[in-house]
Design a protein around this nucleic acid. Sequence first.
DNA 1: CACCTGACCGTGT
DNA 2: TACACGGCCAGGT
Length: 112
Amino acid sequence: MADGDFFDKVYHVVRQIPAGRVTSYGAIARYIGAPRSSRAVGYAMNAAHSHPDVPAQRVVNRIGLLTGKHHFQGSNLMAQLLESEGVEIVEDQVQDFSRVFWNPADELGEFE
DNA sequence: CACCTGACCGTGT
DNA sequence: TACACGGCCAGGT
């Protein structure tokens, strides 16, 4: 892949997260070969509004907290979307996080 | 053009 | 156990 498409790599991975599962910014960053770019992954999600096919609600931080909820419309749209997919949320925290966590490296193998 | 900021994370004291 | 710091990408001022 070309070097200018960091965001595209992020979106490519996020699109493959199954409904009912979540992953973290750091896991995505590491998977696409940029282990220190988790922050940039978050910024990519911020820009994901122009990519309707990217399920940004399935990306949370490393401890399962919905840190990006304020970037969705409404106060808890992010939590509602996740719960409608079967992910239980309490106080912006994903319940059974280790169980619903979806690790791209485990499920997809190596990137590209 | 230089500096700042933000949906983060790992490491070091 | 808790806090500070550096690194990462892109866009705004």
